[in-house]
Design a protein around this nucleic acid. Structure first.
Lengths: 155, 155
DNA sequence: TTGATTTGTTTCAAGTATGAAATTTTCATA
DNA sequence: TATGAAAATTTCATACTTGAAACAAATCAA
């Protein structure tokens, strides 16, 4: 980046390049993880993401909380939870005091399966990110953090 | 990252944290770009991506080249090109010498529309990445590059 | 040459994703 | 206490996505 002969004020092109590379890396890693999950447990990434969110919430989460945390649409979550429920990994319970809302939580089976998957998932990510050491991780983490701050501040 | 009291050998958790953050940032930016594109030109991100790939190839690209470059499945590209073609933005031509293959290229209208969109798109990305300066861009770019190298070497 | 494999594309079923509309329930307030 | 706005979820139409299967055409080997 910013080679010798280049006008430094042209950050715009560099930002575009970084964005395209980030998009590429993210897609490659997602593809790799998706494939491994499919092979290992016949599960999809969206289902795993929902289970990960639910695992942290002992009391369960409302549908709208789920779509908020995962940043996907409400209707989307409805379908994924439907399928998790059909597989016996999650369940919907009513929220006392509000008959509109639903509380979703993992079943015992769902928790057990997620814990098993999460451990392996962490190993995979460690492997895929192995070219980046502690130094690089720190830099990338803080730089990306600035972007989320900015985006979250805009709401 | 790697705070004072922390055992440095536990890079695994840091890598997971960085991956999760990267996923989050990528999704936020994609959501933002998708929304703006929808509002401005009633176009989707996948269509824009295909047009971007085609714009660089004056002679057009084969369907399989497209899916290779964009890292999406063959069947996926079929649908997106179908819709671009229906909108008069791209067209399929036969490849002389190989009756199986198809050459896809932008129409004049497609090129014109893409150039207009690309200019604005670059401004948006510049804005969204504005919290990262030249220094940070460079670091992030090279770190992410190592990951793609590793992943591409594995094929 | 012919048969087998490979290549390029499309089709298909299932799942993921969006944004908008529809439903039901809650809540504020006049 | 009506009643209108806001909130929580589902439903819907449309589009994207995958992996597998189907198909046709090209290539390669016996």
């Amino acid at each position: 980046m910013s080679e010798p002969g280049k006008i430094p004020s042209d950050l715009s092109k560099d930002r575009l390049r970084v964005w395209l590379r980030m998009l590429k890396v993210t897609r490659m890693i997602e593809a790799e993880l998706r494939e491994r999950m499919r092979q290992s447990w016949d599960i999809t990434l969206p289902r795993f993401d929902v289970m990960a969110a639910l695992r942290r919430a002992d009391a369960g989460m409302k549908m709208s909380d789920l779509s908020g945390v995962l940043r996907v649409s409400n209707g989307n979550v409805t379908g994924i939870v439907d399928r998790l429920e059909a597989d016996g990994l999650a369940e919907r319970r009513s929220v006392e005091g509000d008959r509109r809302a639903m509380r979703v939580l993992l079943t015992a089976q769902g928790r057990e399966m997620f814990d098993e998957m999460a451990a392996v998932h962490e190993l995979w990510v460690d492997e895929l990110f192995s070219p980046i050491g502690a130094q690089g991780l720190s830099t990338v983490h803080t730089r990306l953090g600035r972007i989320t701050e900015k985006l979250e501040a805009e709401d």
